[in-house]
Design a protein around this nucleic acid. Sequence first.
DNA 1: AGTCGGTATGTGAGCATTTACTTGCAAGCG
DNA 2: CGCTTGCAAGTAAATGCTCACATACCGACT
Lengths: 186, 186
Amino acid sequence: MSAKPRIERAALEVFAAHGVDGATTKLIAARAEVSEGAIYRHWKSKDELAIGLFMAAHKRLSDLIEAEAGAVHGVEAKAAALVKAYCTAADEDWTLFSFHLLQLHHFLPYYQDDGRDPVTLVETIIKYAMLKMELPPGDPRVVAAMAIGVITQTAQNRAYGRLGEDALSAHAPLMTAAVQAVLMAR
Amino acid sequence: MSAKPRIERAALEVFAAHGVDGATTKLIAARAEVSEGAIYRHWKSKDELAIGLFMAAHKRLSDLIEAEAGAVHGVEAKAAALVKAYCTAADEDWTLFSFHLLQLHHFLPYYQDDGRDPVTLVETIIKYAMLKMELPPGDPRVVAAMAIGVITQTAQNRAYGRLGEDALSAHAPLMTAAVQAVLMAR
DNA sequence: AGTCGGTATGTGAGCATTTACTTGCAAGCG
DNA sequence: CGCTTGCAAGTAAATGCTCACATACCGACT
């Protein structure tokens, strides 16, 4: 079988476990059962490999949020959609999702600011809902952060092994109620 | 002036910016205006330096939570106390706080499981409140994660430069209301 | 007060090792 | 054949850390 997908999987696992800087090309190659040189047939550098994987996760999550939230109306439903988007991303590829979650700050410099990242998307939804008086007023940046925090911290604790092996979606009802509560609270 | 505190400050800044693995002893020494060797007069290794700083932040935050939450009664007040504890830690030394926040997962292996970390403390408070029927039932591990997420994600976004330069405590009222809402939501 | 000696602190050149990455070669394949 | 994919061995640079040496500090003893 071709080495490229094996390398991607291996890299994902190693990056998630050790961080981008802590991961070595040797480890990735060994885990993929491939020589180190094989990596460089497909990527220019270790960082390019890492960025590619990260951006894939980033795009997937953003797309899911846009799709789910765009398909429904009203803040309550949009909150549920947000939780659903995160849970779908987490359930369909937990390694990719947790890599994105835990290594986010490593890639901040590479962020293109096109407003299509999860935080900005949620911020926009909240701003709009405030305009329509569906939400009480308040700094949308903070409200967005708090709402997302409900989900991401739960996911983080799962990644840390504090929540057992259940899928993230197992906690979706609880998270949905909490996100809705955060949005309305003031 | 003695080099040790200068090294601690420099290391904190470099670790927070580049991560533990991404930080080099050369960079730390340069920033502290000290030779590399000086570091090793006070610490056995780069990792020991990092762990020491991390544990200081960890202990400070845990102590604040225990003190603030222990001084009041009722979940509402304890929620406010939790927010206050985080804000105090963040305001009194933002560099130390953000280092702890962003590099947490690097130090998970070193965690001693004495129940005195922030998450477990909050979990215990929640369990007790549920027993006393002050809170609706639900997985305390998840509820604790969600409540803490409200605060930590806000802090993270501040660290990412998305919230301006205001102190974290500037958002305390909003966060307090949100945490209380999360606790009661179901 | 002065000076001796031991210890703590800081230097900077340098060490062994590890790191990301390259290169020459060969096999697979349409 | 021509092109892609993979390997094994290598390279130059960087990294964490050490060590011989220099200086500052500080109490004890005359």
